[in-house]
Simulated assay, not measured.
Amino acid sequence: MARTLPPLNALRAFESAARLNSFTRAAQELNVSHSAISRHVRGLEKRLDVALFRTVARGVELTPNGQWYLERIAPAFDAIAEATDGLTDIPAGQVILSCEPSIAQKWLIPRMGRFAALHPEVRITLTVTDRLANVANHDCDMALRYVSEGVDVSAYDEISRAPVYPYAKPGFADLDPDSLDLAVLARQHLIQEHTGLLWPMWFRTAGVVPDRPLNLSTPLDAVLGIEAAISGLGAILMSAELTSVEVEAGRLIKLSDVGVQSGGYYLLTNATAARRRAVKVFRDWMLSESEAWRTR
């Protein structure tokens, strides 16, 4: 007996728009026009005689019928994708990674050439943002975020929990890392990174009681803070994975081996996306590439 199925293109348009909660993003994902997505969805609604979406101020959202339908057809698309992956040894496809600007610029992007050389058939789409990423709702396949101490990270892959150390431009304030007087460092201009007031914690860990109030900058994000340190505007506390490129190039030097732990970078992968081979190889590569930063 023949199955009664709507046109596949209409189902693909609906599933993509429903998963991404956007006709525009669905059009981008499927490489068609916005009007094509709308036409397919309206045709599907007419065939089923139900409303699958409703218009809201920010765009569209699923109706209860639309949500019910998505929950039942999405696993079928996942199964088809997984079965197709299983027929080839080549993990081709797209992986969408949402990543914070600091670790994207200072750690990930300088290494992406290595992944591209290993897997030219996998296309990495990088979304750089500080905003929360709804991985469960398929905003992206994976999200790389900084997570503060005390947050439950049991569902995440640890990328780095490297402590933060003080760094500065070579020659800054005539400070010599081999004979550094920490009391002298405490009198210098100190660049604050916006994730927390780490300098007082660092001096306490180092056993130093400053003889005057610390000269702290206005909080900057990590990338601007590193650039300020490179420019000689002060010393900064930063984790090693974010400064490795600058240290190797001689633009920054590590002033002390005293480090403090304040959090780490973690990778969260959508459970459905994790079954795709392209996502698997990229996750494995990320974990391999970051292995050194989990042991420092």
Rank of each mutant, 00 (worst) to 15 (best):
P120E: 07
V209H: 04
A186S: 14
T195Q: 12
R145P: 02
L132M: 13
V147M: 10
L216W: 02
V147I: 14
L198I: 11
A186D: 03
R204Q: 02
N134S: 14
D141A: 04
P170T: 13
M112D: 08
S179V: 08
E121N: 11
H189K: 11
V135I: 14
A116T: 13
L175M: 13
F203L: 07
F115D: 02
D139N: 15
S148V: 13
R111P: 01
D157L: 08
W202V: 05
P219Q: 09
A143G: 01
H119V: 10
A136F: 06
L216R: 07
A117T: 15
V209T: 12
T195W: 04
D174T: 10
T127Q: 12
R123Q: 02
P110N: 11
S217E: 09
E149G: 10
I109N: 08
S154F: 03
A183D: 14
G171A: 15
V147D: 02
F203M: 07
A116M: 13
P210Q: 11
T127K: 14
L144K: 00
Q192F: 03
L144R: 01
R161Y: 00
Y165R: 07
P213T: 09
M112S: 10
S217H: 06
E121T: 12
L126M: 13
G196M: 07
F115T: 05
V184G: 11
P210H: 09
A143E: 00
T127N: 12
D211T: 12
I191K: 04
A173D: 15
L126E: 05
L126S: 08
D221K: 09
D211E: 12
P163E: 06
R161E: 06
M201Y: 03
V209D: 09
G150T: 12
E121C: 14
Q192E: 15
V128C: 07
A136P: 02
D181P: 10
V164G: 00
V153S: 10
R111D: 06
A168L: 05
M142N: 01
K169T: 06
N215A: 05
P110T: 10
D178A: 14
E193Y: 01
R187V: 00
A117F: 05
L180G: 09
R131N: 11
V209Y: 01
S179C: 12
G207K: 14
E193H: 04
Y156F: 15
Y156D: 14
T218C: 05
Q188I: 05
H119P: 04
N215V: 02
D152Y: 12
N215R: 11
L214F: 04
P200I: 09
E149C: 08
V151K: 11
F203S: 04
I124Q: 07
L175E: 01
A143P: 00
H189Q: 11
A133P: 00
V164C: 03
V164R: 00
D141V: 02
F115V: 08
L126W: 07
S148N: 15
N134Q: 14
D157W: 11
R114Q: 15
I109D: 08
L198G: 09
Y167S: 02
V135S: 00
A162F: 03
R204N: 00
G171K: 15
P166W: 02
W202C: 07
S154W: 03
V135Y: 00
F203Q: 04
N134F: 13
P170V: 13
D174L: 06
T205P: 03
A168D: 01
W202F: 05
R131D: 11
